[in-house]
């Protein structure tokens, strides 16, 4: 009975981060053991497993904000849910969260909270973005934002196609901190670097997603497309003019990518804000009642 109850609750907790789930189940297991010791029926004592799990999810939701990583390994945040969860992706655009860095959307480490950057730069206020503003973002601006990563990735692909035949069979496999080549790899590895930009750029073209997710996805894809362009450019330049410090183009691409992705989100949002502000009440207008009439 105890194991059955525990299994039933576990089945309803799949969306909880592993650490929270295991902590909750461990506590429940101890509680079930106590109930078993006095011969109590868990369903009678705790309610049915689905309701119990729903209560747990609600209680733990507060303790699992979207800016918390799925796991932590040696103190480093580890995340895998970014590609499938809009809620997790939204941590890279969270103006209400003052933290400049948040756990990455996929992999180990941290990434920028573009929302906090925009607030620090005075581009928006922490509570400017709401459903009304998002609804006011013009569709043309949204499509233009989604076109940015595809344009960068497309330009990178076109540039690579133009120089492909002139490239040697092997290219730099990577660069050291000084920007010099670390070794050789087949030139086909350039296609993997290209895919790093093209894949997310294509994925960010979805038009059926929510407005905020379309912008956030386009911003992430813009950042990746810019880094991909930096890697491809550095590798091609190294192949054509060896012994330079071309690898420095890769770290140089990071701030460019961050600035471009910031523009991809903030531009359309400010357009939405301007439209929302058109309906602003005059400053001297009668204050609204503190409670809505209906």
């Amino acid at each position: 009975m105890t194991d059955e109850y525990l299994r039933a609750v576990r089945a309803h907790l799949a969306r909880l981060p592993e650490a929270d789930r295991s902590r909750a189940l461990s506590a429940l297991s101890a509680q079930l053991d106590e109930l078993a010791a006095i011969g109590a029926d868990p369903v009678e004592a705790l309610g049915d497993p689905a309701t119990y799990a729903a209560d747990l999810l609600e209680a733990l939701a507060e303790e699992s904000p979207t800016d918390s990583a799925q796991w932590r390994v040696l103190g480093l945040p580890v995340e895998t849910r970014g590609p499938v969860s809009a809620e997790v992706r939204s941590r890279t655009w969270d103006p209400a969260n003052p933290s400049l860095v948040v756990p990455r959307l996929f992999g180990i480490g941290w990434t920028l909270n573009l929302g906090a950057v925009a607030v620090r730069m005075g581009l928006i206020r922490p509570d400017d973005t709401d459903d009304e503003v998002l609804a006011n973002v013009p569709e043309g601006h949204l499509r233009a934002a989604q076109a940015v990563p595809i344009a960068i990735a497309g330009a990178t692909a076109a540039g690579l196609a133009l120089v492909w035949r002139g490239l040697p069979a092997t290219v730099a496999s990577g660069f050291d901190v000084g920007g010099r080549s670390r070794g050789d790899a087949p030139r086909s590895t350039l296609l993997a670097a290209l895919a790093l930009g093209v894949g997310p750029a294509l994925w960010a073209q979805r038009r059926d997603a929510a407005v905020e997710d379309r912008l956030v996805s386009a911003a992430s894809a813009t950042s990746l497309a810019t880094i991909s362009a930096g890697v491809v450019l550095a590798t091609v330049a190294e192949a054509r003019h060896p012994r330079g410090r071309w690898g420095l183009l890769v770290p140089a691409a990071l701030p460019v990518g961050a600035a471009a992705s910031l523009a991809v989100v903030v531009g359309p949002l400010r357009a939405g804000l301007r439209r929302a502000w058109r309906g602003a009440a005059p400053e001297t207008s009668t204050p609204m009642p503190t409670t809505e009439p209906s």
């Binding site: 206020r125 509570d127 400017d128 709401d130 009304e132 804000l273 929302a276 502000w277 309906g279 602003a280 009440a281 005059p282 400053e283 207008s285 609204m288 009642p289 503190t290 409670t291 809505e292 209906s294």
Partner: peptide, 21 residues
Amino acid sequence: VATRWVEAGGGPPRKYYRLTR
């Protein structure tokens, strides 16, 4: 809570919050 934008002299409109029912 519900919100509405109210013009602010010399700056962008401010978002005002009020209680809903």
